[in-house]
């Protein structure tokens, strides 16, 4: 008897199909002092993990020279939306090598948009390649 047959993960329907190398903007519901607001976290998806618990994805960004990585469970009901801003061209599933690269090296060549209905593509944010 496998746990997968018994406990179905309740995936968050707000999360579109994403892949490693994508630049995404994650909107997160934060409640503090009885009030609810949205918090944004924008960066590159460096890891997507699948598993019994529904899996998770990790977003990396560099702010003021400090690398910040945040992992979001794909089941989390707090994620309001995930906006895909860019698709990076990558040849690996886990982009841990991005951690060792400086800001200039850490840019990825852009990949042509996949045919995914939910993906949002923004032309003006295109980086020179």
């Amino acid at each position: 008897m496998d746990i997968r047959e018994l406990v179905e993960p309740k995936m968050n329907p707000n999360i579109p199909q994403i892949s490693p190398g994508d630049t995404v903007k994650v909107s997160l519901k934060i409640s503090e002092g009885g009030k609810e607001r949205l918090q944004y976290f924008q960066g590159m998806v460096i890891r997507i993990r699948r598993g019994v618990d529904g899996g998770s994805f990790t977003v990396r960004r560099v702010t003021y020279g400090i690398g910040v990585e945040r992992t979001f469970p794909l089941q989390s009901p707090l994620i309001q939306s995930v906006e895909v801003l860019k698709h990076g061209k990558v040849r690996r599933a886990k982009l841990y090598y991005m951690r060792g690269l400086s800001a200039r090296q850490a840019r990825l060549k852009e990949r042509q948009e996949k045919i995914t209905e939910q993906a949002v593509y923004q032309e003006e944010e295109t980086e020179s390649s």
């Binding site: 496998d2 746990i3 406990v7 019994v52 469970p73 089941q75 989390s76 009901p77």
Partner: peptide
């Protein structure tokens, strides 16, 4: 059966 995790609405 095994372990996993669940999320509450909050």
């Amino acid at each position: 059966i095994g372990m996993t995790r669940v999320f509450l609405e909050e």
